[in-house]
Design a protein around this nucleic acid. Structure first.
Length: 270
DNA sequence: ATGGTAGTTTCACTA
């Protein structure tokens, strides 16, 4: 195969929004779709609907009502052993192999409102999760495997990944302590942040817009929370297509009852 | 400093 298009999308309930996925996939034509916040148990996942839209291969890590990740693929999926990363054991991580490439799909904890691990257990959970992920990434970096790490990482790391760097410095998702932790994960795994390798700052990049703004386009208070990282061995295939190979499908945010996240795709030249 | 919206576990919680 000449190329492989991969996608990541926080769908905020796959049972409610699989029609959006069908409509979007018809245009975007991804080969692999990594989903977060599916909000269902594995036996509740709409497999028939994914088969009908051309994705008969599905791997689900779900739990009742919240969190949950899933990978749907046109190509066969090889299941890989789960490694326990989430300190609370929540359904926030899965890994599979497709076409010889390991896909790691993450839904990192949002972290609550108060950016203080002493008073906010959710923020502590987020930092602990990132520490565990850093250790895992460091260990796996020794293997030289072809790895694509995607997901809703719930952190907008760079100045131009948010609508106002200054106003968000104390807002969870953009605080220095989280950004440092995420940067340590990136370094530990020798990963390449594909979006910024292809589209450098100061160009603004957002993948999420809050439901709490009446007109998301007009206010445009976005953040880049959804990421695609690749291991050094995939640098060539990931960057070969240039900026046009990376896409944020923000038009989906205009659809009726949308997810608050837009899907993101990368065309890998394999 | 506040409140705004959305989904599921629902008159409460997470995001």
């Amino acid at each position: 195969m000449a190329g492989l298009t991969l996608a990541t999308w926080n769908i905020n309930s796959v049972r409610l929004r699989h029609p959006h996925i069908a409509r979007w996939a018809d245009e975007a034509q991804p080969d692999v779709i990594c989903l977060q916040e599916i909000k269902c148990q594995p036996d509740q996942f709409p497999r028939k609907e994914f088969t009908a839209m051309g994705y008969p291969h599905v791997h689900v890590r779900g739990q009742k009502g919240m969190h949950g990740v899933a990978i749907a693929s046109r190509l066969p999926i090889e299941e890989l052993d789960d490694h326990k990363i989430c300190p609370r054991g929540e359904a926030r991580f899965q890994r599979v192999k497709i076409e010889g490439i390991e896909f790691q799909n993450f839904y990192i904890p949002a972290g609550g409102d108060e950016p203080d691990p002493e008073t906010n257990p959710r923020f502590k959970h987020k930092l602990d999760f990132l520490d565990a992920l850093e250790a895992y990434a460091r260990k796996r970096s020794m293997e030289d495997a072809d790895i694509v790490l995607v997901g809703d990482l719930n952190i907008a790391p760079r100045e131009h990944d948010v609508w106002s760097h200054k106003q968000l410095l104390k807002v969870v998702s953009h605080t220095p302590v989280e950004v440092d932790a995420l940067d340590r994960v990136l370094s530990a795994g020798d990963f390449i942040d594909v979006a910024r390798a292809l589209i450098p700052e100061p160009e603004k990049l957002y993948t999420w817009w809050s439901y709490r703004n009446r007109d998301w386009r007009k206010s445009n208070r976005g953040r880049r929370l959804d990421h695609i990282w690749v291991s050094p061995s995939l640098r060539g295939p990931a960057l070969a297509g240039g900026p046009g190979a990376f896409e944020i499908w923000e038009n989906t945010r205009d659809w009726e009852k949308p997810s608050d996240h837009a899907p993101v795709t990368l065309r890998l030249r394999v």
